[in-house]
Write a protein that binds this DNA or RNA. Structure first.
Lengths: 369, 369
DNA sequence: GCTTGTACTTGAAACGCATCAAAGGGGCCG
DNA sequence: CGGCCCCTTTGATGCGTTTCAAGTACAAGC
């Protein structure tokens, strides 16, 4: 069970150490027979290159690290997916670490990746990287995802404020008079969504707006609780439009309202934010604004490649990606016909078509709107 | 931007190379003043240990690798989550690679991890590891997840056959006469589910069973297509019970049936498999059998630890984890009351309680059953 | 003052590989 | 037959650590 090393292969194949190394890294330099002989020996012995030694001797490897705050969040997965595909396209590997909502862990994995001679590192940070001036000085390209700050560096973010604005405009278009925003703006992204909503509504002082904190974690249960509370209000204090700051929240709200006998969208309309698959994969689609996670991951890798190829020191570089991946033509409330609703398969088709980056902002039109 | 190395820190701090190394790895060996001096120097210079060199010099690091076939599959994420938590508990890092449904990539990352001096590697393989005898010979502990085969090695799997059996028994309990199973048994896991269904129904020759292939990827769109086709059958050829081999499929089926004016669960009952969050986070819960992904990840790491600590060569070791994470007392169809239905917040509570491993097999009871 | 012990610190060796200057081995031309 | 060039292979060197045997300094005990 002792590890087979390159010198074992060399001895066994009757060639020198450097030749085996060449077989691995510059096969075109070898005579075909030699190459074949070496490859056979490698397979016979079960030799596996020691990546650590490779990296140490040869500098950076072709791989990127990605630190995500959670894995069970659809948006993060879209980022991972986009980053993965783009990385593979350039011949790079992508390794993912889960920071598990813990900023100590986030920092830990970040340093780990930087120390592993990764060619580049990406993070979807929990807090502003302003707190991390140290990272910017590291000799490894780094790109921050889904965040926006004023430190020098590379950033790719969805336009969260625009998402709020879109939802608000939708509410206005639907003739809303009283809007309730559900959720705790625990993260900058959510704060920006709320900001966008407020800005859009500033032009409509006649529309009443209320923001209800849903509890620390913005769970479906929190949404359900708020939904139940809304349902029990007297009809004239009840909103006619509810915005979940996340789709999970919105989904909880819908459940509660329906349970309590409130008609959705008859009496109250509900929409969410996040583009969470549960919104459109569920058996009843929920309207949601979809931030282009896939696109963000892709752009992130592109920025990494840019830094690697130019070897230029990082300047401030912000990229803002439009807020829609999947689009459906907006229709008036009266036109909504359940048969014509956005269906998973339609969405899938739309998402394929729109997978090239777009700045268009649009929404899925679900059954609760 | 030149990389700071340990010798720079040593020179700057006026101590020797080995002392700095000790500061990092055996701080208890140093005089507190020395330690403090070195730590300050490290921070001032922004020194970051080169992980490659560390691993090369010091042998394996405390980290595990996990190769998953996809990231957007809830079950894989549960595995990742369980593995992550268990790994952290033992002080190990967990790095995740996405094989993107590509067996070449799967193999690639597997080798990569093994070559990186990982302390152990886990895979949720796409095909049977029988094809990978080479892996078993590697000097790195490996555990296969969510699969079952006869080669020597360590395996942790959910009891997929039991899942099929449970669903079938549920159908029987509901008085089903004609069952349609929707989905392509493209993976061993799905095959086993079908097998379980058939076995359970073998005792009930009066129940008609039909298996309908849903297309290559088992998407919601595929489910929708089959659902639509079912809806258009004459009433006497229509099943009274549909099983989606995955929740995504089942969800598509429900959408189609409802769209076509078939009452669910009035005319047709529908259930899924996977314990996919979309089943219970959606605004209308879907009945599903939940394989304990979290538990599988946890057990996987435990098996890794076992191998590391005993340093014993891998013998055959199968662990089968029961098929329920979240349980709800089953009630008769007539008792279903939408107000009392399983709600996300109930589920969340239940899942917390049941997070300790259990072999009990049970299901969520959704609105479509 | 000498020994023994304790508490730290030192620096050389080794980890497995990529690199690259240099050597080797033809073939071709003159 | 000698000289030249090109293609292939060689092996010493160094990558940044950890480790560990050996060293230093100082204190306590006799």
């Amino acid at each position: 069970m002792a590890k087979v090393k390159i010198s074992d292969v060399a001895r066994e194949a009757g060639v020198s150490l450097g030749t085996v190394s060449n077989a691995l890294n510059h096969p075109e330099k070898l005579r075909p027979e030699t190459l074949k002989l070496i490859n056979e020996t490698i397979n016979r012995l079960g030799y596996l290159p020691n990546q650590s030694a490779r990296q140490l001797a040869g500098g950076a490897t072709k791989s990127f690290g990605l630190v995500l705050p959670r894995l069970d969040h659809g948006f993060s997965l879209q980022i991972a997916s986009g980053a993965h595909n783009e990385a593979r396209k350039h011949g790079y590997d992508l390794l993912i670490a889960n920071a598990d909502n813990d900023d100590i862990l986030e920092d830990h994995y970040l340093r780990y990746f930087m120390g592993t001679q990764m060619s580049g590192v990406m993070v979807q940070p929990m807090a502003s990287p302003d707190w991390h001036p140290a990272m910017a000085k590291m000799p490894v390209p780094i790109v921050y995802l889904d965040i926006h700050c004023s430190e020098p560096g590379y950033y790719v973010a969805a336009d969260n404020e625009a998402q709020g604005r879109i939802i608000a405009e939708l509410a206005i278009a639907r003739g809303a008079h009283h809007i309730v925003v559900v959720g705790r703006a625990a993260f900058m992204q959510l704060t920006l969504r709320v900001l966008g909503i407020h800005k859009a509504l500033a032009l409509h002082p006649d529309i009443k707006i209320e923001v209800i904190d849903a509890g620390e974690w913005n769970t479906a249960a929190d949404g359900y609780g708020i939904g139940a509370q809304i349902a029990e209000r007297p009809a004239d204090e009840r909103p006619d439009f509810v915005v979940g700051l996340t789709d999970v929240l919105a989904s909880g709200v819908v459940s509660a309202l329906v349970d309590k006998g409130i008609s959705v969208p008859g009496q109250v309309r509900v929409a969410g934010c996040d583009g969470n698959p549960l919104a459109w994969s569920g058996s009843v689609p929920l309207t949601t604004v979809a931030p282009p996670g896939y696109e963000i991951g892709r752009k992130g890798v592109q920025l990494l490649m840019e830094q690697i190829e130019n070897k230029a020191p990082a300047k401030i570089k912000h990229i803002r990606v439009g807020s829609a991946a999947r689009t459906v033509t907006a229709v008036a409330a009266e036109d909504i016909n359940r048969q014509e609703l956005v269906r998973p398969f339609l969405l899938e088709r739309a998402s394929t078509q729109a997978s090239s980056q777009t700045d268009a902002t649009a929404i899925n039109l679900g059954a609760y709107l």
